[in-house]
Design a binder for these strands. Structure first.
Lengths: 102, 102
DNA sequence: TCCGTTATATCGGTTGCCGATACAAATGTA
DNA sequence: TACATTTGTATCGGCAACCGATATAACGGA
């Protein structure tokens, strides 16, 4: 337990964003690369490890399997976390712009 | 070396922002708590560990000591990193807002 | 005098990302 | 048909970073 560090990692942030629309693991990789303009490419280790831990936290849930594909989607809980994260990021941007333009 | 993960941690981000104006370690703690509305309180372990690694990266530099206080300031290199980070954060916010409001 | 704040520093534990590796089905191409 | 690439999921070891706890000590106010 720490003081208040609710910060999501960039990987987790994009995984959660991707799962607003149900999607399977490989689809998350593709959407993340696309959303970030090719900048962020999730490694398999990051992605599949995160899918396990995010289920344990109750932020995403499995939807079933279609052939080889395992689909997941964001839970209501996960959506709340995402909304809070966007607010945190907006705080960072606001502070950054203020201090950089002295 | 990884694909393109230039993401700063929240702690490092606020430390760099604080050092736009020269400041000593404890002053960074105070400004960070203030800027984040009390949300983020850097632990001593995080702060002093980061001050060492940020010097090694050349993003901050020591200015000298005033009694017990050791002052640091952002380098030009550190400033560039900060500017890039604000741009990255803006991308995250933009994507988050777009996808959350489907 | 005593206590809270200021101030710097180290240590061990935990978490999380990464690259590498593995395996295999599906698709595209020569 | 044969081969290469893409799609798809999964595990492992290593490394970096944050955290809380702990240590030490000067300073200021009640």
């Amino acid at each position: 337990m720490n003081n208040a560090n609710n910060a999501l990692t960039e990987a987790v942030y994009y995984i959660l964003l991707s799962l607003i629309e149900p999607k399977h693991g490989y689809g998350i990789m593709q959407q993340t690369a696309s959303l970030s303009g090719g900048r962020l490419r999730l490694s398999a280790g990051t992605l599949y490890g995160a899918l396990v831990s995010l289920q344990e936290k109750g932020w995403i849930e499995p939807l079933g399997e279609e052939g080889r594909k395992k689909e997941y989607r964001l839970t209501d809980n996960g959506r709340s976390v995402l909304i809070a994260e966007v607010e945190r990021l907006e705080e960072l941007v606001k502070n950054g712009k203020e201090l950089l333009n002295h």
